[in-house]
Design a protein around this nucleic acid. Sequence first.
DNA 1: GCCGTTTTCGGCCCGACTGTTTTCAGTCG
Length: 575
Amino acid sequence: MSNPSRLNRAVAEAFSEIADLLELVGDNPFKIRAYRRGADAVLALDVPVDEALADDGGVPGLGEALRAKALEYASTGKLDYLERLREQVPPAIVALTAVPGIGAKTAWKLYESLGVDDTASLLAAARSGLVRAVPGFGERTEENIIRALSMHSPVQGRRPLYAILPVAERIIQVLKDMPGVTAISLGGSIRRRRDTVGDIDIVAASSDASALLDVFVGCDEFGEILSRGSVRASAVTHAGVQCDLWVVEPQQYATALHHVTGSKEHHVVLRGIAGRLGLKISEYGVTRDADGGLEQVGSEADLYALLGMDYIPPELRENRGEIEAALARSLPRLVEPGDIRGDLHAHTTWSDGTAGIIEMAEAAKKKGYEYLAITDHSRSLAIARGLSEERFLQQLDEVRRAKQHVKGIRILAGSEVDILRDGSLDFDDALLEKADIVVASVHSGFKLDKQTNTARIVSAMRNPNVDIIAHPTGRLLGKRPGYAVDIEEVIREARNTSTALEINSYPARLDLSDEHARAARDAGVLVCIDTDSHGIDELTNMDYGVWNARRAWLEPENVLNTRPLKDLLAWLNRV
DNA sequence: GCCGTTTTCGGCCCGACTGTTTTCAGTCG
């Protein structure tokens, strides 16, 4: 799952496109779902689909028809059926269904009756009052189309968690103390702590749904209200993020929260298991098929227990093997913020930080840490006031002096040394040997090709002075995808050289990603969760890194900086 | 189109909300 082959990805994409197109031509919904499930099934394979199909058992979810299509794609690189479907669906239909509120039926009606073939001509038709003249359409629909198409920041793609979480928490703050509210929580991908989120989902239990919904739709955070019913409402924040509130009865809260938390893929599998046990899960409760009665579900743990499995934390609910593990009672004991004993990547005013060594150490001590590594930039990173060799030596002394001033926490003298384009390090070995800890990372040459980048990181790891590779892919969420690098090769070499790979907790980085960190864990590579703090406030970003680590199935033993100081020092002196 | 301690057809999740319709269709999650 973590790394579907190129073929599997392509086949899954083709199946998904078939499903989309079948939806647009109004085909059998169950057939559509079969293609969607087929796509998921192919993505979940850990061998290329043609090999998997060659085995006896076949692949669940791929019957006769999908099996033949997967093989056709594997041998020819295309699908006849898909190409014929594409010809049946005018691009106009695809474009129009992208407008919120316009589905397949509406798109066809507008296309056939008005001849609109893109969003611009639809907007023009709506503005000149042509839409309301079409049977089945009225003024309100026309207005909604105009509004949807002329919004400056329409509800758009996923955004980084850190950009949404504070808004979501402010909305919760407004709602949580309202009379009648007995429980309230964020759901959706925010609760699962994905690195990016699409919208804000909130579930509340209240004896007065109407009052709560009134407060919700009156909330300052919203620029627009999309809907408001008796148990649900939807609104859009000023930044264009959709926010949905569900209000349920207290006894429905656990199943409602579970439902809204997702993921969809997780729920699909759970429902299948429930079905085989004669149970039906919905947002309102768990019903027995036998007598139609409701099971007692007071918590999400109760729900999982009913299905014969351990409680699955939200971060794992992605159908990446957590259900099998919960059934086998072998879920990982996920790392928690309280397991973290120190931070091994931090900057000070010596380079581009905003606080001094002692200030940073005091702040880290206040967080209850046993250690903090000071790792300022090396000379090449001029933009960050990277240290010259001379300044670096001075700083080592300064850090060791600071140790006398701050008791109760061990300050490690380190470096975040640049990995240069040719794979050499920005400081030579004689210098690096003087440091307690060396974090190496790439800050230049982002356009270099995959092979070059991989080679230079590998070469850095082979330097025995290097302990940790920081932000190994260089991505910035919502800004840039990261440089080209063969992460599997990096993970292999990290294992060979017993180098730790970082989960950088800076909320826009979260690098390694959850999937890459999971692969590192599976390969037996140690991960280090660091904040890369440039000031004392940023030390709290550790939570983001821990969330990401939890999504990667990391247990305390997989994480370098859960180790007590003594063990950490022993590890730093390895080999 | 898939699947079956139901063996080859009949089920596959469905409820909330909106708008336009006089009793429901379309969309969304």
